[in-house]
Design a protein around this nucleic acid. Structure first.
Length: 754
DNA sequence: AAAGCGACTTAGGAGGACCTTA
DNA sequence: TAAGGTCCTCCTAAGTCGCTTT
């Protein structure tokens, strides 16, 4: 990568790793619930039968399907301009699904025996205009109908209780549940909600009160009721919770799976989105609007011609039945807030999703054979006489170097966010000679703020794009939009688009970072380094998360803990000096830090410890008595507590004395200098650990690692890392990710490179 | 060529599950 | 044994990009 001055920090200790035994929950192979084909009066049933049986004996047939072209010829990349290529050309032309992973008898590891699934990656097909031959599924799961609130829970208007019709009450309830949240406090949200609420109210027949102003609505009774319910739910005994959970699982069982070409595959979001208030991100003009309930009549199902049509809910009909095998969705409906389409799709671990994921990464890998030419070209095109070309070159530069998104045009009724092509005058600040400050809201209204040095010509160009009469509000790249850019990219490589650069640069960065990690230390330490590499990628892609509520406090707590450990350490050293006065002369360095602890700090720590001790005693006393009460024993007398507290008082006195003299009492009588040294050493270790932990926590507080791990880093990189470094894959991929990336886990060998 | 649409990937947050710690 | 934190999954919004329509 060229001039990335933004130094990216490496190596951090990360918090504890998830335990080895990732949830081995059962969920695995449940027999595809019998298709209930009875209903559907239409033809179909026969073939549905055949499909089903196909799946049954597929067990035999699956394994390695004959696979017509196990050697997909894949396009031969044009080696054109760029052979020399940056470092890693060691790698043969990107191509080819790994052929039969040689894999010996499968290590015992692999979770569960698990009737194996279709290994599509051993059997690649090139053409994906048709996504399936046969497709059978059970439709979608609807949310439960609305249950009216008990009659004592009401909305109040201007102090008066309101009798709302159920439909309106439901909407009021949507809002009531959110009053205390950021959304609930957002005026736009309130306004949009209120409009829609009034509309539903009038649609459903109105009520006994003339509701006019949002401000006069009092949702607190409803809110409290919901809180109460939440509390109740929390307190349901464990066995009951378990039962409920089981019941839920049973209910969703039929929807979870479908048959794709006769093979069982998981469905992703088989639940229809429940009604609610639209929670737009950032300053979304429509946030708070009512997202209406979706009915079977709104839903279009997509399945095989011969598949049984799942019966619609009692008394309803499906909106439409389609048999379009050029798409991979199972059902769709149109949502009313943005008028956009919602799809029910396959799960991430499905073959279809897996294949396109695989293709995505292969496409990104292919870019490495062209990137050099592309960079060379845009460098020179930065000075092109044609404005359009300069803009293209400059935009490409930004996309390549700073991993910006393409940045399509957005409409008035969406949040004002931008990407590369839609950057405006006010989003960049230039300061000579070549510093650019980016400050804009990107996808999801996440702020992109970076102060960077850019190529000289880029700086000039940006200045040019800002030149009068351009003014705030005007687009920097006024000749450009993503489709123009993407069309140019096609010239270098078929299928190359702006987003491929992000994938490429992310995975490339990961590869480079992993290459720097030495193969040493414990697995846990290696995982820390892996995460550090992951973090550089996340930073590159600007994947952020909001800092957790308690973050500040958590940091403070750790800092205090470190301080206390330091104090304790110094205390031990002081004890040593009492045992052997000459030590200080013998090892001046060792005792230097005695000076580091200020009187104030020491006193403060004393105070904290004493307070904590007192608190502890109080709590213990209360707890013990609580227990006794339950057991019907007689309570401990107050004097017991007094006694305990007296001990603390003594400790306090001791500390006071110690603070004055600077000579802590050498505690256990048989203490020796050696023992103290050992203690000090232990503390030092702990301090080092905790400090690392603190740093990690701080560095990580605003960075989301997950997004890049899931979408940008070629999973084969992680797999190779684990293999080479003897790190269990469970430390890197959760169960879900292992399922999603099964193709990578099973197909790659140690020498694989991105 | 612009606008709109359809289908797909990418994204952060909510909330529950799970683990650690007192 | 509860409380507190972290991790994981689910949820659904918000992008990208190709294609169709005007």
């Amino acid at each position: 990568m060229s001039d990335s001055e933004d130094d990216i920090v490496l190596a951090r200790r990360t918090k504890k790793q998830p335990s080895l035994a990732a949830n081995e929950s059962d969920e695995d192979d449940v027999p595809l619930s019998q298709l209930k084909k009875e209903s559907s009066p239409d033809d179909t049933s026969i073939s549905s039968n055949s499909q089903k049986s196909a799946s049954k004996n597929s067990k035999a047939s699956k394994r390695k399907t004959p696979s017509t072209s196990s050697q997909p010829k894949k396009r031969v990349k044009k080696e054109v301009k760029d052979e020399e290529e940056d470092d890693d050309d060691d790698d043969k032309p990107a191509k080819a699904p790994a052929k039969k992973p040689v894999k010996k008898e499968e290590t015992p590891n692999s979770d569960e025996p698990e009737e194996e699934t279709y290994k599509w990656w051993e059997d690649q097909k090139d053409d994906d205009t048709f996504k399936w031959d046969t497709l059978e599924h059970h439709g979608v799961m609807f949310p439960p109908p609305y249950e009216p609130l008990p009659s004592h829970v009401k909305l109040y208007y201007d102090g008066k209780p309101v009798d709302l019709p159920p439909d309106a009450e439901e909407v009021a309830g949507f809002y009531a549940a959110l009053v205390e949240t950021d959304h609930g406090k957002n005026p736009v949200f309130q306004k949009n909600f209120f409009n829609d609420f009034l509309q539903v109210l009038s649609e459903s027949g109105g009520c006994n009160v003339d509701i006019k102003e949002f401000e006069k609505c009092d949702f607190s009774k409803m809110y409290n009721y919901f809180e109460l319910k939440k509390e109740e739910k929390k307190n349901v005994p464990a066995f009951e919770k378990k039962r409920i959970k089981l019941e839920k699982e049973k209910e969703e069982e039929p929807y979870k799976f479908c048959l794709l070409n006769g093979r069982k595959e998981q469905v992703g979001n088989f639940r229809v989105e429940p009604p609610g208030l639209f929670r737009g991100r950032g300053a979304h003009p429509r946030t708070g609007k009512l997202k209406r309930r979706v009915h079977p009549e709104d839903i279009i199902l997509n399945l095989g011609e011969n598949a049984a049509v799942p019966p619609p809910p009692e008394g309803h009909n499906w909106g439409e039945i389609k048999h379009d095998n050029t798409v991979s969705w199972l059902a769709m409906w149109r949502e009313n807030v943005l008028n956009s389409v919602k799809y029910v799709r396959f799960a991430a671990n499905s073959s279809l999703k897996g294949m396109s994921d695989y293709k995505k990464f292969e496409k990104a890998r292919e870019l490495k054979y062209h990137i050099e030419a592309i960079r060379k070209d845009y460098q020179s095109m930065l000075r092109d006489k044609l404005m359009l070309n300069r803009q293209i070159a400059t935009a490409t530069y930004l996309i390549d170097i700073f991993a910006l998104r393409a940045g399509g045009e957005k409409s008035e009724d969406e949040a004002d966010t931008v990407g590369c092509c839609s950057l405006r005058y006010e989003h960049i600040t230039l300061s000579p000679p070549n510093t650019v400050v980016f400050d804009f809201l990107g996808k999801d209204s996440i702020r992109f703020y970076q102060e960077v040095q850019v190529d000289h010509q880029v700086f000039k160009n940006l200045k040019l794009f800002k030149k009068a009469p351009k003014k705030p509000g005007d687009e920097l790249f006024d000749r450009l939009d993503p489709s123009i850019l993407n069309k140019r990219f096609q010239n270098y490589m078929p299928g190359l688009t702006a987003k491929v650069f992000r994938t490429y640069n992310a995975s490339k960065t990961m590869q480079d970072q992993l290459d720097l990690i030495p193969n040493e230390g414990t697995p846990a330490e290696k995982v820390v380094k892996f995460n550090a590499a992951n973090r550089t990628v996340a930073i590159l892609c600007n994947h952020q998360r909001s800092v957790a509520k308690g973050h500040e406090a958590a940091i403070q707590k750790i800092t205090d803990r470190i301080k206390e450990m330091l104090w304790q350490k110094i205390r031990f050293k002081r004890m040593m000096l009492q045992l052997d006065k000459n030590l200080k002369k013998k090892k001046p360095k060792y005792f230097e830090e005695l000076e580091d602890l200020t009187k104030e700090d020491e006193l403060e720590i004393h105070k904290v410890i004493i307070e904590r001790e007192r608190d502890k005693q109080h709590k213990k006393f209360a707890r013990d008595n609580e227990k006794r009460k339950e057991d019907g024993e007689k309570l401990l007398p107050e004097s017991e507590l007094k006694e305990a507290l007296k001990k603390v008082d003594e400790l306090e006195k001791e500390y006071a004395k110690e603070a004055k003299s600077g000579k802590p009492e050498v505690k256990p009588a048989n203490t020796t200098v050696e023992k103290l040294e050992a203690q000090v050493e232990k503390l030092e270790q702990r301090i080092a650990n905790t400090t690392l932990q603190l740093k990690d926590k701080e560095d990580n507080s605003e960075v989301a690692l997950g997004t890049s791990k899931i979408n940008y880093i070629d999973p084969r990189l992680s797999v190779v890392f684990c293999k080479k470094f003897d790190v269990p894959i469970e430390k890197i991929f959760t169960k879900t990710l292992r399922d999603k990336f099964k193709w990578a886990i099973e197909s790659v060998d140690e020498d694989w490179r991105f």
